[in-house]
Design a protein around this nucleic acid. Structure first.
Length: 418
DNA sequence: TCTGGGGTCCTAGGACCC
DNA sequence: TCTGGGGTCCTAGGACCC
């Protein structure tokens, strides 16, 4: 049995944790630079506030309903996420953190210990609420995809009260029949539209297709989903928690940038983030993609990228930084109002099983990077950094509605009046 | 006045070669 | 003059997720 546990409108719920005054109000959270609405709490959802719409387009609706608006406060969310994941980890020795607010728990082998999965799910919910004040939904199923479906039912369908269990044919069919096919994990809008054309509307409709036919008409990936929906596990635990094959760091700017040095500094920062992510999953990159772009929503869209091959796979911040410095002149164009830039690591390999190049230049001692990581793990990311990444930053993220960093800054600690 | 997220993976099709 | 096959590698863009 697998469980998928995730928070209800995580960012919006996180904003409510230390601000009880807004707990019973509609709350939305915006993406970086206050660009789009990315989290809508259940109260706001009932008012019909849509998710993933540009903020400026829905601002008047939010004002009309007096919705509480917050900018993304990732320091807060990351900290609360860690607390939630730590709580969940106590329930199961096999936890896979799938995203900032979701974790799979592998309960295979627990059948003799747990007689009532629904009760157990409620126990998980109560515990997480007591310890973190985050509301979560819990879905149980014999495959990861069915656990996802059960989780969807737990939160969105009537009569489940936050926990849904798919344990037999009846519960499987009940949940899948009530789900639109587009809500199945792995089926997006495009695929959903195509499926509707051949009369597949619900999750159950999809589950009842023959995998062979789906493979022929669509892809192996969707055929696997069909099997998973029938209780046949196709995503092994290793698949679910596989290492990333690419790692990116990209961001749009709060204001457009034309300054050469500012753009370069931003790219170097992204390179350092990517290097850190590489070391976190013990990978090395053979190739680095570096790109810059102006706004696609404006006239004269400028976009350029460069693919940089390393002589040997690396996860060294200095080596990645040097790559950016080397090719920067080929990306920068004076006069362009840059809107976005980023760095991505491709062709990753394991740090552990490494084929060394007999003729490559001598490598920097990896101890330098592990020293940097150790210090930053102890005192916070950014405590120790590459000098060129810390040049005066001339861009600021637009975060007009930012809440305090309740848990990560001394002067932001919540104050209680007696 | 203007404003539009971030990340990962896959694949069709172009470029090149023999 | 026009058309023809098969393979590899690379990249832009599509699709999906949260």
């Amino acid at each position: 049995m697998y469980a998928l546990v995730d928070a209800v409108a995580f960012y919006a719920s996180a904003e409510k944790v230390f601000d009880p005054a807004i707990r019973n109000k509609p709350v939305v959270v915006l993406t970086n630079n206050d660009g789009c609405v990315c989290a809508v709490c259940p109260i706001a959802r009932r008012l019909g506030i849509p998710k993933f719409q540009p903020f400026f387009k829905v601002k008047h609706v939010l004002e009309k309903h007096q919705v509480v608006i917050r900018s993304s406060n990732y320091e807060l969310y990351a900290d609360l996420s860690e607390r939630m994941m730590n709580t969940l980890a106590r329930f199961c020795d096999k936890q896979h953190i799938y995203s900032i607010d979701e974790a799979f728990l592998d309960f295979n082998g627990f059948a003799t210990l747990i007689s009532d999965w629904s009760n157990f799910g409620q126990f998980i919910r109560r515990t997480v609420w007591r310890e973190t004040k985050l509301p979560v939904g819990v879905g149980f199923g014999p495959t990861a995809t069915l656990a996802k479906a059960a989780n969807h039912a737990a939160k969105k369908l009537a009569g489940f009260n936050g926990v849904a269990v798919i344990s037999d044919e009846q519960s499987r069919k009940q949940v899948l029949a009530a789900m639109a096919v587009g809500d199945i994990w792995g089926v997006g809008r495009r695929l959903a539209n195509k499926l509707k054309l051949i009369n597949i509307h619900s999750g159950l409709d999809l589950a009842e297709q023959s995998p062979q036919r789906i493979k022929r008409l669509f892809s192996v990936v969707l055929a696997r989903t069909v099997k998973e929906l029938n209780g046949i596990p196709c995503l092994s635990w290793d698949d679910v928690r596989q290492d990333k094959k690419q790692l990116f760091s990209t961001r749009s700017f709060g204001q457009r940038i034309t300054d050469r040095q500012a753009l370069k500094t931003a790219l170097i920062n992204h390179a350092c983030v990517v290097a850190r992510k590489l070391r976190e999953q013990k990978s090395l990159a053979q190739r680095l993609v570096i790109f810059v772009a102006s706004s696609p929503h404006q006239q004269g869209y400028y976009k350029k990228s460069y693919s940089y091959q390393f002589s040997a796979p690396t996860a060294d911040s200095i080596t990645l930084t040097n790559a950016v410095t080397d090719i920067f002149a080929q990306l920068y164009k004076p006069g362009v109002a840059f809107y976005k830039c980023g760095v991505g690591a491709l062709e990753l390999s394991s740090q552990v099983f490494q084929q060394r190049d007999l003729f490559a230049n001598e490598h920097r001692d990896p101890k330098l990077m592990s020293c940097l990581d150790t210090i930053n793990a102890r005192y916070g990311i950014g405590t120790l950094a590459i000098a060129s990444a810390t040049q005066t930053q001339r861009w600021h993220m637009k975060r007009q509605y930012l809440s305090p960093h309740y848990t990560t800054r001394w002067h932001d600690l919540p104050k209680i009046q007696c």
